[in-house]
Write a protein that binds this DNA or RNA. Structure first.
Lengths: 247, 247
DNA sequence: TTTCGGGATTTGGTATACCAAAACTGTTTG
DNA sequence: CAAACAGTTTTGGTATACCAAATCCCGAAA
């Protein structure tokens, strides 16, 4: 199960086990890992032939990824790998904060002992991997933690929506590069969230989640400005392009 | 534009103007109005032939509606019109409350004068239609109001997600029957929301929205128990089925 | 009468073929 | 030399054909 990367399990939508599903998972992995360049076209004909499948399931796979926000569909033009701007990313962040705070509050009311045990176990994994594992592993544990919170709320719709946002944000964070600083802080903040949940204290839990996620906002900004700086090769600001690089 | 009923405009996902889109809009209208019985099967072959189109766009339309939550896809079985249980509906309600409170708070910061003017105009329409219009018109104005709040937040992702939940909840409310009581209260509560927005006071706005939407919770419960009672023809409670009527 | 089995049928999943619109290219023309 | 143009190509949208799994139905056996 290591390195699964299947972040988009929307239970309702496309029947599992179908070819379209497999293609979608495959494409998603390549998108998340950056194998497929953001902004590049996804031509259903070429990709289908390349993978040895027909256009129909490939087409459906593209739609699945589109609804997850990883691919942008354009009228009468090739779909392209999404390349979210800073604005879009912080928009997503705002939404996921609200969703996850709600999850935390609901989890205080609805979580089963098994749910909480799972949270504790994930946290243990994170601490254990503190200073040895590679960043990708840490990232996945981090994702698991947040996913588990949404699951513990026992609201399937919420979990589904949350998972979609988590996937998009995770991809952005991953592609922007992962830093090994601040691990200590992440562990502390996860601990605070866990404390709130174990005490079944909605306000404390919500606050802890909010604090934790709001940390990502300046970090994301930092990543983007870093990227822009690299693109501008430290040229004077007068030459800088506007922040949004998408039409 | 009267009676449009196209609640599912997800800008990203499926290119507008395509046949699949038109079919989806058509199907959605029939589902929302109850022409298509909840729980009934949607056979892509039959429906396609009936509408004089091929299976491919019909298939895609079904997927669109599935992702909106109006149709449930099952492995190797015909998709069926969603028939949300009370539990699922209140789950959706919990989520939309969080989304719309966030929208209101963001709107206090981001709304343009035009956005606020639009809100005021919609509210005026509602007051004007107070005691004359048929319930469907009122319903649409109500939807427009909430949609406009999400739009005023200037967060496209939020607006998209909010619209999806609004569509599902609206359908449930509509199918459960619309009452003409409490119009006065709705108008007052919309007014309170509007006041908060015009004052750009996030807390007041958020609270007003929360109060307004939390009203729906007991009302929804009432509708469902009424429905169950009708199904049981007022028989002794011992014969009542469990609340969830879906597998 | 009930139950079990097998074949016909229904249905979604997949592959392929066709079409029209948009994009591209190389040329022509002012 | 630049801009416009026409033919070709590329590409997504749609229709149709084929396949396999699940279902359904009916008859035979206990």
């Amino acid at each position: 199960m290591a390195h699964d990367l299947d972040t988009g399990l929307t239970s309702t939508d496309p029947p599992a086990g179908t070819l379209a599903r497999k293609i979608a998972n495959d494409l998603r992995r390549n998108i998340l890992l950056g194998v497929l360049e953001p902004g590049s076209a996804v031509k259903e004909r070429d990709n289908a032939e390349e993978m040895g499948v027909s256009r129909t399931p490939m087409r459906e796979a593209i739609r699945i990824l589109a609804q997850e926000g990883l691919i942008i569909l354009r009228p009468s033009r090739s779909p392209i790998i999404a390349n979210p701007s800073l604005q879009e990313t912080s928009d997503d962040l705002e939404v996921i904060i609200a969703l996850e705070v709600l999850s935390g509050e609901l989890a205080c009311r609805n979580a089963s002992d098994a749910d909480l045990a799972a949270l504790v176990a994930i946290n243990k994994r994170l601490v254990a991997a503190y200073d040895q594992a590679d960043p990708l592993v840490l990232f996945e544990i981090d994702m698991d933690f947040h996913r588990a919170i949404a699951l513990a709320a026992h609201n399937p719709a919420l979990a589904r929506t949350h998972a979609a946002y988590l996937g998009r944000l995770w991809r952005t964070r991953f592609l922007n590069g992962r830093r090994r600083r601040n691990r200590q802080r992440v562990i502390l903040q996860h601990g605070a969230i866990l404390d709130g949940l174990l005490a079944r204290h909605p306000e404390a839990t919500g606050t802890a989640i909010r604090v934790h996620l709001e940390n990502l906002m300046p970090k994301t900004r930092e990543f983007y400005s870093l990227r822009d700086d690299m693109a501008a090769v430290k040229q004077p600001a007068a030459l800088a392009r506007p922040v949004t690089d998408r039409s």
